[in-house]
Design a protein around this nucleic acid. Sequence first.
DNA 1: TGTACATCAGTGAACGCGCGTTCACTGATGTAC
DNA 2: TGTACATCAGTGAACGCGCGTTCACTGATGTAC
Lengths: 206, 206
Amino acid sequence: MRKSKTETAETRRRIVDLAAQTFRSNGIAATGVAEIMAAAGLTHGGFYRHFDSKDQLVAEACSFGLDDMVRSYRSASEGGRERFVKHLQSCLTPAYRDDRSGGCPLVAMGSELVRADAATRRGASNGFQELIDEIAQWLPAKSRREARDQAIAVLTGMIGVVTMSRVVDDARLSARILRAGKDEIGRRFGTNPPRRRGSVRRRRRG
Amino acid sequence: MRKSKTETAETRRRIVDLAAQTFRSNGIAATGVAEIMAAAGLTHGGFYRHFDSKDQLVAEACSFGLDDMVRSYRSASEGGRERFVKHLQSCLTPAYRDDRSGGCPLVAMGSELVRADAATRRGASNGFQELIDEIAQWLPAKSRREARDQAIAVLTGMIGVVTMSRVVDDARLSARILRAGKDEIGRRFGTNPPRRRGSVRRRRRG
DNA sequence: TGTACATCAGTGAACGCGCGTTCACTGATGTAC
DNA sequence: TGTACATCAGTGAACGCGCGTTCACTGATGTAC
C-alpha cells in the first residue's frame, strides 16, 4: 500500500488543509484526529506516518491558515490602497462571518490559541505580525512605529468584530457589529463616507 | 448527607463560580465536569442534583461571568466619565491579561462561544448588549444609535486586543498590543494624550 | 533494463484513559401530624 | 414540641463512548546491484 513520494506529500498537504478547516469550524479540542483523517478519506491509524502528534498538526494547520490570510492580504495590496481597504472590509461581511471553515484562524480559534503549545503560538504570532505589516503600509501615520500601532488596533478590532458577530444570537445585532467594524475601517483609512470612485491615495510620510 | 436549602443554594452558586473560572482559564471543551466538582470539594456524581447537563452549567457560568463584568462597568460608571474610561483601560493591562481565570468570558471563551448552545449564546448576547449600553452612555455622539455603534467598536476592539495579547508569544509585542488598545480608548474618549491632571474634555461637534 | 529486497503509506484492531451521564445507596434535612 | 417518614444532596461505582496513540500487518514504491 505504500504511496509514491509525490502522493505522500500531497496527502500530507491535504490533511493539513482539512485540519485547518475542521479546527476552524469545530474548534481544536472538539476535533479528533480520526475526524480529520476520515475527511481526507483515510483511517486514523495512518496519521502518525505524517505527524508526531495532534499538537503538531494544530501548529501546522494554524500556520497554513494564516499563510492563506497573508497571501490574500498581499494579493490585495498589489491592487493598491483602495483595493486593500476593500479587501479588509470584505472580511467584515455576513458572507465572511458565515464561512466558518474558512477565514482567519485567529478569529476562529482565538481563545483556544491562548492555550495552545509553543509551536502553535509561534506560528500565530508570526502570522499576526505579517498581517500587521501588510496593514501598516497603507495607514497614514507620522512614523513607521505609529503606523504599526494603528495597524494593531485595526487587526485586533477586526478579530473582535468577526468573533462577536458570530457569537451573538441576534441577526440584527450581528449585522450591526459588522457594519460598525466596516465603518471603523473606512474612518481609519479615510475612505469613509464613500466618495466617488478614484478617491485620494495618501502615502505615509517619514 | 442531605444539606440544608441554604447550603444547597450556596453550593450551587460556588459550582457556577468555579466553573466560570475554570472554563475561562482552560476552555469549555477542555474542562470536565469532574474537574469543576473536584475544585468545589465534591465528587462528580452530585453534579446532576444541581444541573441538567454540562451545557446548562456552561450557559450559567458564562452569564455569571458576564454579570460580574456588567457590575464592574456599572460601578465604574458611578464614579463618572473619567473613572469609567480608566476602568476600561484597566482591562487592557498586563495584570488583566495574565488573570486568565478572571475577566471577560467573551475574551476567554470567545471562539468557543461561537459554537455554544442556544442558551449560552443568548446569555453572551445579553451580556454583550449590556456592556455596550454601559460604554455608549459615555461616548460623545450625534445620536444614541451612533454612540452605540461606537461602543460596539470599542468593546469588540477590547476583546480582540486582550485575546491577541494572550495569544502572541512575544512579551514585547503583547505589551505593545495592550498599549495600542489603551491609546485607542483614550483617543476615542478624548482623554489622550494624558495632559496634566484635570485634562481637557473635548466634545464632538454637531 | 531486470531482479531482489528494504522501505514505508495506509489499515484496522487494540491500548489506557477520561469524558458526560446514570444509579443504588447513605444519612441529614424538611415536613406532616 | 416530639415523632415518623419522605425528601434529596452528595458518594462512588458503573455505563457506553470517543479520545490520542501504538502496533502488527499488507503490499506498492524506491533502491541497490
